[in-house]
Simulated assay, not measured.
Amino acid sequence: MRRLYPLPAPAPARPDPAGPPPGPDAATDREWTLDELADAYAYPAEDDPLRAGRPGWLRANMVASLDGAAHHEGRSQPLSGAADMRIFGVLRALADAVVVGAETVRQEGYRPARARAAFAARRAAAGQGPAPAVAVVTAGLGLDFTLPLFTEPLVPTLVVTGAGAPAERVAAARDAGVEVLFAGEGQGVDPARVPAVLAAHGHRRLLTEGGPSLLGQFAAAGVLDEMCLSLAPVVALGDAPRIMDGPSVAVPERFVLASVLEEAGFLFTRYRRS
């Protein structure tokens, strides 16, 4: 892996030409350590001006093919690769909660996030639990609460829904040990309220993995702070959607480029709201 943007400052010349050569810098093509990736993708500090007036920080992580497909035959895994999965794992390990739509839970066979020893000290220093919670955004709670995501989580799984959600499904979720949070007055979820509702329960470093409909709703509501997009060097064709599928906006929102990494033809881009 190497950093394409921003490039590091040139290393100073060695004071002793006979001394050891400098170590590899971020522009050198090599496998980065997990700590290096975690530093590169660290969330902005709570006092960072980027977060002024916002309850937390909502980051998205998606992969797309060269022709813009968000998945192949319903799953994102065929578009992924080894480096993409490393970054996927790092982004999860940095988050307080992983926010995902119910359809993506069903399509991708979501399981609970796991604790990883490599990040234990970092999470403890940040005041985080051993693993991120998974927060499922759903209107009708059409979920199988006997699945491991709900029965075997290290950190209790959350369901985010509207106050008008079916009462019997809310009761079924609670009977299964799921914490139900309400973000909206009707049956559906108000995407603009999701970050604040999760932040009120201690989840301020948020990572959403979609799917495209949920991500589009977050973007249209103006609450998406950062987009981590992996561009895969493949052509998928077919009728797969784009990474976002949401309502039209009056004026396209501009994001600014924060960083670009490259490995094995994959481009790992990171954009922040301007």
Rank of each mutant, 00 (worst) to 15 (best):
D190I: 03
D175Y: 01
F150C: 04
V180G: 11
L154N: 05
V178T: 14
T157P: 12
A167L: 07
Q187W: 03
P166A: 01
G186H: 12
A171R: 09
P156N: 08
L158C: 10
Q187E: 14
A167F: 09
G164Y: 13
V159Y: 03
T151R: 15
D190S: 09
L141R: 02
V170H: 07
P153F: 08
L147W: 13
A172G: 11
R174Y: 02
T161G: 11
G184K: 02
V189E: 12
L141K: 02
V160G: 06
A176F: 04
V189W: 12
A163N: 00
L143P: 06
D190R: 08
T161V: 03
A167V: 07
R169P: 01
A176D: 02
G164A: 07
T151F: 12
A171L: 07
L143K: 12
R174M: 11
A139G: 15
G188P: 11
G184S: 08
L147E: 14
A183R: 04
A176H: 09
A165F: 08
R169L: 05
V159A: 14
A165S: 07
E185K: 14
G164I: 13
F145I: 05
F145G: 02
T146W: 02
E168D: 15
V159T: 08
L141V: 06
G164Q: 08
L147N: 05
V180R: 09
A172F: 00
T138D: 15
V159R: 01
F182S: 01
T146K: 13
P166D: 13
P148L: 11
P166N: 10
F145L: 04
L181G: 14
E152S: 15
L181M: 10
A165G: 05
T138M: 08
L143N: 08
G162E: 11
V159G: 10
D190F: 03
L143F: 07
V178K: 01
A165M: 00
G142H: 12
P156S: 09
A163T: 05
A183Q: 10
F182A: 02
A167H: 13
A173R: 00
L149M: 12
T161S: 13
L141G: 01
V180M: 11
V170Y: 06
E185Q: 15
A173Q: 03
G142E: 00
R169M: 06
E152M: 05
V160F: 10
E168K: 11
V189K: 08
L149C: 11
P148M: 13
P148W: 05
G140C: 03
T146Y: 05
F182N: 00
F182R: 11
A171Q: 14
A139M: 06
E179H: 01
G177D: 03
T138L: 04
F182G: 00
E185N: 10
A173M: 10
T161H: 03
A167T: 04
F182Q: 07
G186D: 14
A139Q: 14
L149F: 13
V136G: 09
V189A: 07
T146G: 14
A173F: 09
A172H: 05
F150K: 00
L154S: 13
G186I: 07
L143V: 07
P148D: 12
